[in-house]
Structures are given as C-alpha cells and as structure tokens.
C-alpha cells in the first residue's frame, strides 16, 4: 500500500520534471534541427516539423560561417563580454565590500537603491547614452558597449556581491588583520577566496547579460566589423521580411553553446552561491 503511494508520488514528480525539461529544452531542440534542415523540408507544410523529413545539410552552417561576418561578431561578443566582466569585477567588488562592511544601516538601503537603477529599462536610457557615446566619438566602436554595459552589470553585481560579503563573518577578516594583514590585504587574501562562487557568478552574469544585450548594440553600432552576435545575426540574416531561418538558428546555437557549457560546469557553485546567504 505504502509502496504504491510512494511509486505514485515518484511518478507525479518525474512527470512534472519531464514537462519542465521538455518546455525548457524545446527551443534548443528547435535550434538544432532548424540548423541542419534543408529549406524545402522546413517550409513544406505537409512535413512533420519536429523531425528530419529529408537528409540533413551543412549548407546553413556554411552560409553563416563563410558568407556573413559571424566569426567577427563572435569575436566581438567575447571581447566585449570579457572586458565588461573585468570592469564589473573591478567596480563591484570594492563597492559591494564597502556597502556590506562599513555603510551599516545605510548599506542595505543604498544597496537596494543601486539595484533599482538596474531596473531602469534600456529603452529609456539608450537616447541619452547614445549622445554620450557620440560625444566621446565612440560610435561604431566596441568601446561604446564596453563602457555602457557596466551601467547595468555593476549595479546588479554589486547587489549580488553584497550578499556574499555579508555572509562572511567579520571575525575572520579581523582575525586576518590581527594576524598581519592590512584591510586591503585581508580583502584579497581572505574575503575574496571565500567568495569565489560570488566572483564566478559575477563573471558569468556580466558575460551573459552583455551577450544578450540588443538595444544599445543596435543604436551604437552600425559598422559590421564592430557588431556583436546579438545584433549582427538578426541584422544580416533578416532581410526585410525574409528570415534566413537556417543560418539564424545556427548562429543562435553556436552562441549559446559556450554559455551552456559554463553554466553546466559551474552550476553547483552557482546554486550554492545563490542560497549561501539563506542557510548561513
């Protein structure tokens, strides 16, 4: 009797789980088959859309890699992502540390205030910011993105890191200062190693946030040589109302693979990162 109930519970659990897996994996599945489907197969209404009805092809991949600037876009995306992650770390670590340790009562309020700026949509900000990039002569330069993306990564990551720093007992840092370190030394030798999952989270977040960004990239960059994937792929592969689905999906697939790999490898650290404040 109990055994049956247990089995039933497991069945419901796995049932729900599978529903979620199907729901979230479906876009990836679609990207994969659309990448390798012949156009005729994709567009023929009589065909089953979920499987290959004709033999797969590498044509779309070839178009993407050799007839577009996709590799340049990919390179730009990585350059921007890395630079933004570095800037974000450099700014968010000291900001979060000071807010977490010194600002006391005001720290919490300031932290939330900073976080709120993250919620101001870029559809409002792109106008003033495009004047800013124009004023600095940065149109069509990757630097416009590298300087503007931190305006949303830094607030978010500062708020995120505050939680990590607060979770580290003050005693440990003070012990390090008695044991022979300056406050800065204690931050570097003790606090940062203990918040390694926070730092990784910051890197992954700023990287993916800048990878996904569309509006700034669209308004600041029009030169193909300086486009990122998120803007280059749709502008070059959507001509008027003609969508080149094959190459489009191939581009999306390639751009999402590194992110998927990073998330998979660091998922444990991520999860522990997000729940650390809660359990400690």
């Amino acid at each position: 009797m109990a055994g049956i109930r247990k089995t039933a519970r497991r069945a419901t659990l796995y049932g729900r789980l599978s529903a979620f897996v199907v729901f979230s994996a479906f876009p990836f599945y679609w990207m994969v088959i659309a990448t390798f489907k012949r156009d005729h197969d994709l567009y023929a209404p009589a065909n089953n859309p979920f499987v290959f009805n004709e033999p797969p092809t590498l044509d779309h991949l070839r178009t993407l890699l050799f007839d577009t600037h996709f590799l340049t876009y990919l390179g730009n995306t990585f350059r921007v992502g890395l630079a933004v992650s570095a800037i974000t770390l450099l700014l968010a670590v000291p900001a979060a540390y000071s807010l977490a340790r010194w600002a006391k009562r005001w720290g919490e309020a300031l932290g939330i205030g900073i976080f709120l700026t993250y919620l101001v949509p870029s559809t409002i900000l792109f106008l003033p910011l495009s004047r800013f990039t124009a004023g600095w002569g940065l149109q069509n330069s990757l630097w416009s993105l590298i300087l503007v993306y931190p305006t949303f990564t830094v607030p978010f990551c500062t708020w995120l890191l505050m939680g990590f720093f607060k979770a580290i007992p003050r005693d440990i840092e003070e012990q390090a200062m008695v044991d022979g370190l300056s406050r800065l030394g204690a931050l570097v030798r003790v606090v940062l190693p203990l918040s390694i999952s926070g730092l990784l989270t910051v890197v992954v977040f700023s990287f993916t946030l800048s990878m996904h960004e569309f509006i700034y990239a669209l308004t600041f960059i029009s030169d193909s040589a300086a486009k990122t994937v998120s803007i280059g792929v749709p502008t070059e592969l959507v001509r008027g109302d003609v969508f080149q689905w094959g190459p489009l999906m191939a581009g999306a697939l390639i751009a999402s693979i590194p992110v998927a790999v990073v998330y998979t490898f660091f998922l444990d650290r991520f999860v522990s990162g997000f729940t650390m404040g809660a359990v400690k």
Binding site: E174, Q175, M177, V178, V190, P193, L194
Partner: peptide, 19 residues
C-alpha cells in the same frame, strides 16, 4: 594598525579560515 601591535587574539567564534 592591528598587524603591527604584535598581539594575538582568539575570537569567541575562533574565526578559523574555512578555506
């Protein structure tokens, strides 16, 4: 600063470095 006072302290929590 504390590091130059040549004092050693044992905190109530022991404050061992967890890593």
């Amino acid at each position: 600063p504390p590091r130059l006072r040549n004092v050693a302290m044992v905190f109530q929590s022991y404050a061992l470095y967890p890593h």
